[in-house]
Design a protein around this nucleic acid. Structure first.
Lengths: 274, 274
DNA sequence: CAGGAACTTCCGCAATGTGGAAGTTGATGT
DNA sequence: ACATCAACTTCCACATTGCGGAAGTTCCTG
């Protein structure tokens, strides 16, 4: 293990190597679900900085334990039944999803396109929820539970840009190597963050396939301490310059309402210290 | 590591010690949620057969990774935010929960007491879903996601008794040490399995607190290959001998209907090979 | 405030996990 | 159909990671 630092998680080097690596693999499998191509051994090894034999052995254990399953045809790994089961038992710290449900409903209804709720999870953005609009052609590139590096996609970019600058820089640096797989590089992300901050909302065009376009607004200081963003994704033609502004206005309006609703029920759940 | 074999998982001794132990701890934390008392270090160490320092170190890593959280007041561990998030992304093999939803609705409505859906997960029973009835006093000892050794509780007993005898014996043997914490021993469980098989349904009285009583019926050959049981739990007074029979009849009726519905939509999802 | 239990830290030893290299399987192109 | 290549899997000698007994600390409980 002479490797350069930086490939790995880089902080907290004491103990738990195997477990940390295993969790990194799980996160990567979870992230790979977003991009169409499944989570193959080689890709996972590369993304986590592990050698192929090591990744293989760890994955085999995770498989046997039921944390992962493997598609026999494509050989791709995916999250397993035990994780689903744990998910049933694990209550979220703050139920961001429920708190934002009505907001999402209204956004999807009014915009007619798909509304998304994204939150921060470490250096990832996580799709917490979504609502489909009434328009015939639905843009559904991301599914609930999907995970990708902060900065990739409208919602994820809005979340990233809403973090304190120092924090955002750290995240971008940590994700440096992962952006390439999404057709991005760190510098482009940094530029996009600036633009998002200046504009007040995020706009993106699907990188791999330029078929979709997204508009996103971060929620004030987050929901119960968790940074989140509201976004709308549609096929590119449906989001021309004019409509982008309209959707952004809608998102901003809903963001303000949501923030008000949250501070109203502030005393309900007190945040837990880390 | 001179320890006696049998304390650990006992099969598949090759590789992945750290990860296997970590998963065992997660399962135990998940199981401890059921019994009122939280998952303390000492209990987890004992239940998993680890020494306290080892358990402590592993738990610390799981904590740092976000798979667990810790209640600062009680020092008890509980499943963390990352597991909730993975749960969103992990689709269940077969959506047992949705397939049985209407059945549960009807049982709860007709019985007036709480209806439960339990499935097998390894050597555990897992509460997949529940519906509250209309009766004023609700028996809600178990929550969705809760996990306890197969054999503990009506639903868990019905599931266990529905397994092939050899398989059930293995499970009971594997759970040997865990029954004590629920006021049971392996031999009592074996007797209860026999009684359940003879009777055609399971009846239990809460062991730790004899306040509740439960009636359960296993679903034919399981749902999509997963062994499951339907059950009704109520305060003991509400389930006297006469009503037990009535509830059992209701459960059996619903079980038959469910089985019919399943075999009707058989071709929909083909089971995935292990 | 003393006694005890639960939790946390320490550290030398060795079992577990590591990754280069070789072997196997399966996909792709001619 | 066959050759070529890439992706996956297995093997094994080595040392890093993880282990747990013992000692220290904190937090209850009487």
């Amino acid at each position: 293990m002479v490797e350069d630092a930086g490939t790995e998680v880089a902080v907290g080097r004491d103990g738990g190597q195997a477990i940390r690596r295993a969790v990194a693999l799980l996160r990567e499998v979870s992230a790979s679900k977003a991009k169409g191509l499944g989570a193959k051994l080689s890709g996972l090894a590369e993304a986590t900085g592990l050698t192929q034999p090591t990744a293989h052995r760890l994955l085999a254990v995770l498989l046997k334990e039921g944390l992962l399953e493997r598609d026999s045809a494509s050989r791709a790994y995916r999250l397993g039944p035990l994780l689903y089961e744990f998910g049933l038992a694990a209550a979220p710290r703050v139920d961001v999803r429920r708190m934002c449900g009505p907001t999402l409903d209204r956004i999807a209804a009014e915009a007619g396109d798909t509304a998304y709720l994204n939150s921060r999870s470490g250096t990832d953005a996580l799709c917490l929820d979504r609502r489909e609009g009434s328009f015939e052609i639905r843009a559904l590139p991301v599914e609930v539970g999907n995970r990708r590096p902060l900065g990739v996609g409208a919602g994820a970019l809005a979340v990233l840009a809403s973090l304190p600058p120092g924090e955002a820089d750290l995240v971008v640096a940590a994700n440096e190597g992962r952006y390439r797989r999404h057709g991005l590089i760190a510098d482009k992300v940094r530029t996009a963050i600036e633009a998002t901050r200046a504009r007040g909302f995020a706009v993106t065009t699907g990188r791999i396939v330029a078929r979709y376009r997204g508009v996103a607004v971060a929620v004030g200081n987050g929901v119960g301490g968790v940074p989140v963003a509201l976004s709308v994704i549609a096929i590119a033609e449906r989001l021309d310059v004019r409509r982008i502004e309209a959707v952004a206005a809608l998102l901003r309006r809903e963001e303000a309402a949501l923030r008000a609703a949250i501070s109203g029920s502030l005393t309900t759940h007190k945040g837990r210290a880390a």
